[in-house]
Amino acid sequence: MAEQSGSIAVSSGVPIRGLMPGGAIWKHISRFARRKPLGAFGAVIALILIIVAVFAPFIATHDPAATNGALVYAPPGSQLLLGGDQLGRDVFSRLVYGARVSLYAGLLSAFIGASIGMVVGVASVHFGGKTDLIVQRIIDTMMAFPPLILAITIMAALGASLNNVVIALTIAYIPSAARVLRSQALAIKEMDYILAARAIGASHGRIIFRCMIPNCLALYIVLVSVFLGTAIVAEATLSFLGIGVPPDVPSWGGMLNGAAQTYVHLAPWLGVFPGLAIAIVVFAWNLLGDALRDVLDPRLRGTW
């Protein structure tokens, strides 16, 4: 059998012949860039943002924590690229450093939350019966709290730290992800190919991970983009309440949440730039996610 053409070998991944020859990866990437320019654009933005976060000290023009009385509310332009905040700190440099916390917390909690939620939702549907009933009641209970309140409760138990923020947000997203993917999983469970998998003696793990989850990916991608935006802001809220990262560590959500809201009429750039940064992340993921969804869907193979 010839090498699998055109698919990034997600489909089923039969281990015996799923491996891709080394050079093929570049072929796939260049093909992706040609056929899905918007998706590639999204990927490039995401990559740039991650590079910015990693190399923040080299990119920032100022010390993000350095205050300067002369630059309080300095408008964007000559002195400071994106203006100064209420303590005269450089907004640009804070944005650059803020990418570290925001992307870390946002990406991790959105992806992990959606992933665990997907597995929980799908597995619960797969096992059905009492298991499903119990899982659903637990999810109901968790969903009775708004995600932020849930996260705050968890943070209170865990103590303040960036990693704990990620853990708290991840847990907070699991129930809604599980609930949303459940509907999809219920439809998939009724398909005969699930029964066919059982009829050949497939294990539970195989049915969940090979048969059901690949058919949930479209919804998963949408879910991640929803979570991504809210996670970045939620991290800031936790920090603002003093249970996240220390307030002097810059983050986009923190910038948006703090002085920006109070002084927005005086210095709109305090809100505009961090807001824009969050929007760009979500936008980049949407572009990339849309393209990925098409690429991962064998029905669209050949059209991309």
Partner: peptide, 27 residues
Amino acid sequence: QVIFQDPYSSLNPRMTAGDIVGEPLLV
């Protein structure tokens, strides 16, 4: 073994024909 009625819902849309036929061998 079993053969199903609906030729549409009985094959996993995300697996190739070869994978579908080979899966029982692996399992």
